[in-house]
């Protein structure tokens, strides 16, 4: 999931200065989990902007409909096509990806050019929850987990080292960069020790190949998923949610 936080309202208002008609659009994906683009966030933002004297149109995406998945999100955008065409600005309550996917659609498919403004700061690809999340992968394009017993050296290590630990590990095994975080390389050492694979630790790992992270990366898949049938097909699995054991978050 993409962790995110709403920007300070002053910053948002700064971007919207001189823009009278504003469309506020949310996201039913990650932004809903982070309360940065759910229905309430969109409504609250709408209200706040009306107080500033702006004419606001709100677009709420229901849970499961992510702004970045254009096939679905565009249907909600199209419903407010008139307002979008006439808008001075579109305030996107999603991550930067959602914001740009929507901006692109508006420009190419609706044929309008609207200033797209971010309401949120995207903070990384994270996992975990329901309350605590952790960034564990930065989608580097050439996964190294096979060399580091499943702990990402690029993301979990404060310096992204392929051959740690650095000289800065703290007394309690925490990271030089942040005393709140464990040193990834101490964790890698300990896991290798448990697995009896310490010989791997003393081997040099080659520098990471960054050539697979040439940006922006483009992809194409042969057979697109049909969202409606995917949802319907998944229903039986959802039912097992009510029969399985309950997950308890670690304190």
């Amino acid at each position: 999931m993409i962790a995110q936080e709403q920007k300070p309202i002053e910053e948002i208002l700064g971007y919207l200065e001189g823009k009278q008609k504003v469309v506020v659009m949310g996201c039913g994906g990650c932004a809903t989990f982070y309360h940065t683009g759910d229905k309430k966030a969109v409504r609250d933002m709408g209200e706040r902007l009306r107080k500033e004297g702006k004419e606001v149109t709100e677009i709420v995406l229901p849970l499961g409909i992510s702004a970045c998945e254009i096939d679905m999100s565009s249907k909600f955008l199209e419903k407010k096509r008139k307002a979008v065409e006439n808008a001075d600005a579109l305030l996107m309550m999603s991550c930067g990806d959602g914001a740009q996917v929507i901006a692109d659609y508006i420009e190419k498919r609706i044929g309008a050019t609207v200033a797209v403004v971010p309401a949120n700061d995207a903070l990384g690809l994270v996992g975990g929850g329901p309350k605590k999340f952790k960034e564990t992968c930065q989608m580097c394009g050439q996964c190294e987990l096979g060399k580091t017993v499943g702990i990402c050296p690029l993301t979990a290590c404060g310096k992204g080292l392929m051959n740690g630990p650095c000289g800065g590990v703290r007394e309690d095994g925490k990271c030089e960069v942040d005393p709140e975080k464990d040193c990834a390389w101490v964790k890698i050492y300990e896991r290798m020790e448990k697995l009896g694979e310490l010989d791997k630790f003393t081997e040099m790992r080659d520098p990471h190949a960054w050539s697979r992270a040439k940006r922006p990366r483009l992809f194409e898949i042969e057979e697109p998923v049909k969202p409606v049938s995917a949802i319907l097909g998944s229903l039986p699995s959802y039912l097992t949610l009510f029969t399985g054991p309950k997950y308890e978050e670690e304190e």
Binding site: V169, R170, E171, G173, Y189, T202, E203
Partner: peptide
């Protein structure tokens, strides 16, 4: 004086 000396030693050997 590394806190986790065994990891530091392995790194020096590397």
């Amino acid at each position: 004086g590394a806190a986790v000396l065994k990891a530091e030693i392995a790194k020096v050997k590397r």
